[in-house]
Design a protein around this nucleic acid. Structure first.
Lengths: 233, 233
DNA sequence: GTCTATAGTGGGATAGAC
DNA sequence: GTCTATCCCACTATAGAC
């Protein structure tokens, strides 16, 4: 199989010449600015290229599609979330408090992008989109987010069935995806309803987890773990 | 404000002349055929118009956009699902069996459309899209689907906390939306993994519901009901 | 009110020269 | 690595036939 003659770099930091790195950054920054000003659909690749002072073809050399530009937004928000959650976690030792800290800080961090997020969310929801949170391209951001939940669990006093403990961070990440789904649909001022949802669902999750240690719920945790294992392929 | 000179009909059955009805159906059937053959992206509006033996402009007269053609798919699949679930339900009296019947029959009915379903799924995921399962435009289909789950519950022997019983059909519909979400991401042959998921999750749900009557789980059902009530407002 | 024909526009994406 | 030129197709516009 012959080498592709034009192989656009797909990693934000990996092995690029300084010049290429700079061009890439130029394009990305122009794109994010335009996205915030005009939304996703309102921003054309031509406008991005123009604002970044490169040709249209060059923009496509660095970003295989318009959707790929959004990956930059993901990287950004993930870093911000990690930082915000970190300081919120420092003050909490209870499991409920720590989970609340992680979920709530995400909603806070994402707030400025709420409008823009709604516009491109459909692209992220598409199964084969690189923007899908389940895609290979999103693996790094996904792992980082799961790691955050792992920190929340491990730093806490939660009593959880042993079998479930290893899977818990991933399950909590899934919960967070549910919160995100709700969030993009949330039109209330300052996403108050999402905050309410988080505040109500956290104690419920806490209660559910404790339940897995009840005699009558014996096996429930194992079933959930088996389900996740199977489902992950 | 002047009247639009051409106002395309947007209801599948509402007030159309017989001729118009026939043309609309022609276009829709051609579209669904092509979608199945060539997928969503692989089907152009020109091809749809040609296959339906109408002009491109006429296709747009009946369907405001390519996405609007997809509503026809929803209507179709919902009717098919109701029929398939009905006969599957007739043979089952246990709650697990009945829930399995409803979920599994959906996966069967939807199977032929799996490939192209992924391509337009993003439209359903978009918050303000009329194609969203939560939208006002989808209310009829949503209610029909919830009613199906209500039949599954009420015809069964399930013992469930009183407070939860009224909400249960809606919660099961949410579960089905989760299955759909998994299904569109499922690339395994004949969506075997989705079938596996359904087969594993049904007894788990059954167990969870029974759990709500346990002394230690007292209040859990009420919390869930309160959560749903809050979230819907 | 239903439909055709035709001629656009806009923008995502690509090819191939340099 | 960067450009210019081009393709393709969703979608629009319009003028008019029946």
């Amino acid at each position: 199989m012959p080498d592709r003659s034009a192989s656009p770099p797909d990693s934000p930091t990996g092995g690029l010449t300084p010049k290429a790195e700079q061009t890439r950054t130029q394009i990305l920054r122009a794109a994010l600015d335009l996205f915030r000003e005009s939304g996703y659909d309102g921003t054309t690749m031509r406008a991005v290229a123009k604002a970044a002072d490169v040709s249209l073809g060059n923009a496509y050399y660095y970003f295989a599609s318009k959707e790929h530009l959004v990956q930059g937004f993901y990287d950004q928000i993930q870093v911000d979330h990690a930082a915000a959650a970190e300081s919120a976690l420092a003050a909490e030792t209870g499991f409920s408090g720590r989970l609340l800290a992680v979920l709530d800080s995400w909603v806070d961090v994402a707030a400025p992008y709420h409008e823009f997020a709604g516009a491109f969310f459909k692209n992220a929801a598409e199964p084969r989109s690189p923007l899908s949170p389940f895609s290979g391209e999103s693996a790094a951001a996904r792992e980082a987010s799961i790691a955050l939940h792992r920190r929340a669990v491990e730093g806490s006093d939660v009593k959880v069935a042993a079998a479930l403990r290893a899977q818990l961070p991933e399950l909590l990440w899934l919960l967070q995806m549910g919160v995100v789904l709700f969030w993009v649909h949330d039109d209330s001022p300052e996403q108050r309803r999402t905050h309410d949802l988080v505040r109500q669902i956290v104690p419920l999750v806490d209660r559910l987890i404790r339940l897995t240690r009840l005699p009558g719920a014996r096996g429930l945790a194992e079933d959930v773990v088996a389900l996740v294992a199977k489902v992950r392929g």
